[in-house]
C-alpha cells in the first residue's frame, strides 16, 4: 500500500433489486482516521451502501476496496467465504437493533469471535473483554445477559464486541435510532471517544447535531445518489443543493 492508496475506496457502486435501482453509481473515498457521516431520508440507500462495504448486501456493480484490497471479489464459493471472513474481521459493524447474542453473557458476546477466529486463550480473552468493556463503561455488567441490559447498554456492549476484533474500520448503521431519547447520549459519548482515538468510522445517522460535532465530512444521499458532500459546517449551514436544504429543513423542524 502506497501513501496514495485511499483507505476505503468505493468505485461506481451500483445495486438493484429487480427493476428498482437503490444505489446509482456511487464513488467515494475515505482516508485513514476520517469520520464520515451519511445522512438522508429513509429509502435513500444510505444503509444499503453501508452494508455493501462489508458485503452484507452485495453490490450488483462496482467495487469496494479496503487499503487497496477488493472486498467484494467474485470468487468460487469456498475461496470467497475465506476471503470475506478475513475482510470482515477488519471491519467492525454496529447495528440499529444491537444484535447482541442473547444466549451469551456480556463477556462471551465480546470474546466469542476473538477466541474462535484468532485462537487466543481464555485468559487473554478475559483480559480483552475487560479492556474493551472498560472502554465503553460496561465493565461492571460483564456477567450480565443482554436481556438484563437497557438499550444503551446493549449498544455499548455491541460496540465493545466489534472493537474486540481490533478492526481498522467501524461501520455504524443508525446505532442510536432504536434507543429511547435519554439513552442516546451514552452511546454518542462512546462514539465520540472512538473519534478522538482516530478510529476510521462511517456513520449512517439521523442525528444531525452528533454528525455536526463529530464528523470530518458529511454525505447527503437521496434516491440512490450522493447529492452533496462536504464538511459539516458547509452541509448543515450552507448547502448548495435544494434537495439538501429541503431535507434539513424538514428534518430539523421535525426533531426540534
Amino acid at each position: 500500500m502506497t501513501d496514495q492508496t485511499p483507505f476505503v475506496e468505493i468505485r461506481h457502486a451500483q445495486k438493484s433489486y429487480g427493476d428498482l435501482e437503490v444505489l446509482k453509481d456511487i464513488s467515494l473515498t475515505v482516508q485513514r482516521g476520517e469520520i464520515v457521516a451519511i445522512i438522508g431520508p429513509s429509502g435513500s440507500g444510505k444503509s444499503t451502501l453501508l452494508r455493501a462495504i462489508n458485503d452484507l448486501d452485495p453490490l450488483t456493480g462496482g467495487e469496494i476496496l479496503l487499503e487497496g484490497v477488493q472486498v467484494n471479489k467474485t470468487l468460487p464459493h469456498r475461496q470467497y467465504e475465506k476471503h470475506i471472513n478475513a475482510m470482515r474481521q477488519q471491519i467492525g459493524m454496529v447495528f440499529q437493533h444491537f444484535n447482541l447474542f442473547p444466549h451469551l453473557n456480556v463477556r462471551d458476546n465480546v470474546t466469542m469471535a476473538p477466541k474462535l477466529l484468532k485462537g487466543i486463550s481464555s485468559k487473554e480473552a478475559d483480559k480483552l473483554a475487560e479492556e474493551q468493556l472498560n472502554h465503553v463503561g460496561m465493565l461492571e455488567r460483564i456477567d450480565y445477559y443482554p436481556s438484563q441490559l437497557s438499550g444503551g447498554q446493549k449498544q455499548r456492549v455491541a460496540i465493545a464486541r466489534a472493537l474486540a476484533m481490533q478492526p481498522k474500520l467501524m461501520l455504524f448503521d443508525e446505532a442510536t435510532s432504536a434507543l429511547d431519547p435519554e439513552l442516546v447520549e451514552e452511546v454518542n459519548l462512546v462514539m465520540k471517544k472512538l473519534a478522538e482515538e482516530h478510529m476510521t468510522m462511517i456513520i449512517v445517522t439521523h442525528e444531525m447535531d452528533f454528525a455536526a460535532s463529530v464528523c470530518d465530512r458529511v454525505l447527503f444521499m437521496d434516491q440512490g445518489v450522493v447529492v452533496e458532500e462536504g464538511p459539516p459546517e458547509k452541509i448543515f449551514k450552507n448547502p448548495d443543493m435544494d434537495r439538501t436544504k429541503e431535507f434539513l429543513r424538514k428534518h430539523l423542524a421535525g426533531s426540534k
Binding site: N54, L56, E81, N85, A86, R88, Q89, I91, G92, M93, F95, H97, N99, L100, F101, H103, M112, A113, L116, L117, A158, R161, A162, M165
Partner: peptide, 21 residues
C-alpha cells in the same frame, strides 16, 4: 436474521455462525 448478520460481520463463517449463534 440480525443474529446471523452480526456473527458474519465479526468474521464468522456460515457454519460457525450456525453452530455458535
Amino acid at each position: 436474521k440480525g443474529q446471523m448478520e452480526a456473527a458474519r460481520t465479526l468474521g464468522l463463517s456460515r457454519p460457525q455462525a450456525l453452530i455458535r449463534v
